[in-house]
Amino acid sequence: MIGKVVTSGTFTLDGGTWDVDNNVWLVGSDEEALVVDAAHDAPAILAALAGRRLTAIVCTHAHNDHINAARELAEATGAPILLHPADQPLWEMVYGTAVPYEPLADGDELSAGGVRLRVLHTPGHAPGAVCLHAPELGVVFSGDTLFQGGPGATGRSFSSFDTIVDSIREKLLTLPVETVVHTGHGDSTTIGDEAPHLQEWISRGH
């Protein structure tokens, strides 16, 4: 039902560039799947699909390291790219207006191979950041909104610490405590492991 490919490349914003490893998640069945965050290496993602039909390329946000393989993957498979339109300025930094996407909205439901995922708009790390909750699997794909140890970074353009904390409190910490959080970078965690630390994050962030 859930597969992962770790790809490597760079993240660039505000004049800086950093080496990063990204988690690319594949969700679905033996026949079809969707991809969460097409990062860096379209051939590696295609190999992991292993011939399955790709139903969608879902972007948790439009920082370049999460979308820089999206066009190549879409062209190879015919799958649509899905993104929250509040991230249009970040999208245009990578693709201009040449690559179309379909808009995501809070509460949308996606499916692949019998797996249902509900879109949670969780701005803060980026204006259009979203998480994808798959209740039957007991998981949420958090992109860069929530990591093991705290919220995603908010020190760069188009980000807000207060907003990301509100998003996590209202959209993620309300999920069942046993929900596994599959992140955009690094190790997975659970809602139950992260929830007790909310006040620590707030104190640290101010």
Rank of each mutant, 00 (worst) to 15 (best):
P80T: 07
H84P: 05
S157D: 02
G107N: 02
G124A: 07
I67K: 02
A56W: 03
R116T: 14
V27M: 10
L90R: 06
D106K: 04
L46A: 05
G124Y: 01
E92G: 11
E72S: 15
E102S: 14
G107A: 13
P123E: 05
E72I: 14
H84D: 15
G78R: 02
R52Q: 13
V140R: 01
L137H: 13
E102P: 06
L117Y: 06
R52W: 04
A153Q: 08
A70Y: 13
S111L: 08
V140K: 01
A126P: 00
A33E: 11
E72F: 14
A33P: 01
A33R: 03
A42C: 10
V35I: 07
M93S: 01
I45W: 09
T145M: 04
A62Y: 05
T77A: 08
E102T: 15
T55P: 00
V139I: 14
S167P: 07
L90D: 08
G124F: 01
I164S: 00
P100Y: 10
V94T: 15
Y101H: 15
L104R: 01
A76H: 05
L34C: 04
P100I: 06
D30R: 14
Q148T: 12
E32S: 08
P43Q: 07
D166C: 10
H66D: 10
L54K: 02
L49A: 05
I57F: 04
E32G: 05
I168H: 01
V140S: 02
V99N: 00
G51M: 11
D30E: 07
G155S: 07
A69T: 09
T97C: 05
L137N: 06
D106L: 13
P123K: 05
A42F: 07
L146Q: 03
S142N: 08
P43L: 10
R116P: 01
V58Y: 04
T55F: 02
H66W: 05
Q148N: 12
P103T: 12
A38F: 06
V139C: 14
A112I: 11
I81E: 04
P151S: 08
